[in-house]
């Protein structure tokens, strides 16, 4: 319940944050704090300094830039949930945000904080993969943009290097014929995903032209179900196709398991929720 001591630095710009991180390699960025503070309270995390970036204006807000939606890393789950722009141009994200944690958590927790933390059971990563999002990362040597496919590198591990900050999330604007959905089984206590599958499909003439499917919760990090994507592309997404395609999508040996849900069961759930997510996405296309 009580964290260790640390020094606290509130910054107003990304550059300030970067220079503080460089000075103190043990410092952690504090965004909404809804992953970090609980870990610190259980003394599982013990940074000597926190750099509070939650008020950095340049990290906030949702805007459209051509065919891309640019979401500031410090945008809260609530802001995503309520965003009229997203509801129109990328309805998957408000849908996912709506089931994260609870309202009080959503009022503080941020998209950037969640992605940077890369909890293997977080909900957003699956949708980032399905949407084909990309992440802008800024460091002292300038900035770079990393595809979601290359962003989640392991359990609690991302492409963000030391001294770097995730500043923006770029999401393509939904185009004609596109449907997207997220289907999940939530852990009844933690409310994190046991298995969550996000699907984005582009349909034309009743046939799937493109599919992207992201899975979270079951493995060490969120990942694409590429085989499934290939298996359904070029086909109608009817029950028979989906049922045939969603079989043994992942190997239990590659998954996490605990006393609530074993790896075998999670592997089964990936099949079930992938099928449901694709069906729901097709229904919305």
């Amino acid at each position: 319940m009580y964290t260790n001591q640390f020094s606290y630095h509130r910054v107003n710009t990304v550059q300030e944050a970067i220079s503080l991180l460089q000075k103190n390699p043990d410092a952690r960025l504090l965004a909404g704090g809804h992953s970090l503070i609980p870990a610190m309270k259980l003394r599982l995390s013990d940074p000597s300094a926190l750099v509070d970036i939650s008020r950095v204006a340049e990290l906030k807000g949702i805007r459209q830039r051509g065919n891309t939606l640019v979401i500031g890393a410090m945008t809260t789950h609530s802001e995503i949930e309520d965003s009229a722009l997203l509801k129109q141009l990328c309805p998957l994200l408000p849908e996912v945000a709506h089931i994260i944690g609870d309202p009080a958590v959503r009022n503080r927790g941020t998209l950037g904080g969640s992605l940077a933390h890369a909890d293997p059971a977080a909900d957003y990563p699956a949708s980032m993969l399905a949407l084909g999002a990309s992440m802008k990362i800024v460091g002292s040597n300038g900035d770079r943009v990393v595809d979601a496919d290359n962003f989640f590198t392991g359990m609690f591990a991302t492409a963000i290097g030391s001294g770097e900050i995730l500043t923006e999330i770029h999401v393509p604007v939904k185009t004609a014929g596109v449907g997207m959905a997220y289907e999940t089984m939530m852990h009844p206590a933690s409310r994190y995903a046991i298995v969550g599958v996000a699907a984005m499909v582009r349909m034309s003439g009743g046939v799937c032209q493109e599919a992207r499917v992201g899975m979270t919760g079951a493995g060490h990090h969120a990942m694409r179900l590429s085989g499934l994507e290939a298996a359904v592309t070029g086909k109608p997404l009817d029950a028979a196709t989906l049922s045939a395609a969603c079989k043994s999508l992942v190997r239990p040996a590659d998954l996490l398991g605990d006393h609530f849900a074993s790896a075998d069961y999670r592997a089964h759930l990936v099949d079930v929720y992938a099928q449901r997510a694709l069906a729901a996405a097709a229904g919305k296309a």
């Binding site: 259980l42 852990h187 009844p188 206590a189 933690s190 605990d258 006393h259 609530f260």
Partner: peptide, 11 residues
């Protein structure tokens, strides 16, 4: 293993 409210499911 159900040592906190993260694991023990109070409805």
């Amino acid at each position: 293993l159900s040592g906190t409210m993260l694991e023990y499911a109070i409805p």
